[in-house]
Simulated scan of single mutants.
Amino acid sequence: MASSLAKVTLFITFLFCALSNHEAVAGSNSEDTPSLEDLRLLLKSQKLTRLNFYMHDLVLVSDPTSVRVAGVPGSNGNTTNFGDLYVLDDPLTTGPSLTSRAVGRAQGIYSFSSEDATALMMSINMIFTGDKYNGSTVAVIGRNDVLKKVRELPVVGGTGAFRLARGFLQISTAVLDSPTLSVVLNCSLYVLH
C-alpha cells in the first residue's frame, strides 16, 4: 500500500512539474484552456462516476451504424474475420431498445485483430448528449474479446465534465442478431475524473 501511495505521489509531482514547464513555455492561456491552478483543483476534487447505457452496433441493415471499410474479400478459410476494419457511429441509449432515450453516440473504429480468436481492437470516443454530461466525451481504447461474457476496456481520457478521465468500460452482449451482424451492448462505464 505504501509503495502504491509513493508511486501516485511521484506521478502527481511529475504531472505538476510537466504542467508548470508547459505553462511557462506556452505563455498565456486561451479562455478554453484550463490554468495550472484549475488543473490542480481538478486533481484534488476527482470523483468516480458510473454510467450505464446501451450501444447499438448495426451492420447489415438498411441504415447501418457500423460499416466495413477494409478487409480481405471472402473468408479464405479465416473464421475470425482477421484484418477487417469497421468505422462506427453507434447510438447510445438508456435501454436495450433503439427507441429508448438517446444519451449519446459512440464514434470510432474497430478491427478484427486476432488470427485465432474473435477479438477486436477498439478505439472509440463516447460523446454524451444529455443532462449534465452534454458535450463531454470519454475515450476508450483496447481489446474486446467478443466471446467472453464480460469484457473490460480502458478509459484513456476525456473532455468536458470528464477532463483527465481514467477508468474502464465493462461491456456484455445484450442482444445479438446473427443474420444482420448487429449487436446491442450493455455498457457500464466507470470514470475517475
Rank of each mutant, 00 (worst) to 15 (best):
residue 2 A to K: 05
residue 4 S to T: 15
residue 5 L to C: 13
residue 7 K to M: 15
residue 9 T to W: 08
residue 9 T to N: 12
residue 9 T to R: 12
residue 10 L to T: 10
residue 10 L to Q: 12
residue 12 I to C: 10
residue 16 F to I: 05
residue 18 A to E: 09
residue 22 H to D: 10
residue 24 A to I: 07
residue 27 G to W: 07
residue 29 N to A: 12
residue 29 N to E: 06
residue 32 D to R: 12
residue 32 D to Y: 10
residue 33 T to N: 03
residue 33 T to A: 09
residue 34 P to T: 03
residue 34 P to D: 01
residue 36 L to V: 04
residue 36 L to Q: 01
residue 36 L to D: 01
residue 40 R to C: 06
residue 41 L to K: 15
residue 42 L to I: 06
residue 44 K to M: 08
residue 46 Q to G: 11
residue 48 L to Y: 04
residue 49 T to I: 05
residue 50 R to L: 08
residue 54 Y to E: 07
residue 60 L to A: 15
residue 61 V to D: 02
residue 61 V to F: 01
residue 65 T to K: 00
residue 67 V to L: 05
residue 71 G to Q: 08
residue 87 V to K: 07
residue 88 L to P: 03
residue 88 L to S: 12
residue 89 D to H: 00
residue 91 P to V: 02
residue 93 T to L: 01
residue 94 T to W: 02
residue 94 T to I: 01
residue 99 T to K: 15
residue 99 T to Q: 11
residue 100 S to A: 05
residue 103 V to R: 14
residue 104 G to K: 09
residue 105 R to M: 03
residue 109 I to P: 02
residue 109 I to G: 02
residue 111 S to D: 10
residue 116 D to N: 14
residue 119 A to W: 01
residue 119 A to E: 10
residue 121 M to T: 14
residue 123 S to Q: 14
residue 125 N to V: 06
residue 126 M to D: 00
residue 131 D to P: 02
residue 133 Y to C: 05
residue 134 N to R: 15
residue 135 G to K: 10
residue 135 G to L: 04
residue 136 S to I: 06
residue 137 T to K: 06
residue 139 A to R: 14
residue 139 A to G: 13
residue 140 V to G: 01
residue 140 V to M: 00
residue 142 G to N: 07
residue 145 D to M: 02
residue 146 V to C: 07
residue 146 V to N: 04
residue 147 L to D: 13
residue 149 K to Q: 14
residue 154 P to Y: 02
residue 158 G to D: 00
residue 164 L to N: 07
residue 167 G to R: 02
residue 168 F to E: 01
residue 172 S to C: 03
residue 175 V to K: 07
residue 177 D to K: 08
residue 178 S to R: 10
residue 179 P to D: 01
residue 180 T to N: 11
residue 183 V to L: 14
residue 188 S to Q: 11
residue 188 S to C: 09
residue 190 Y to N: 11
residue 190 Y to V: 15
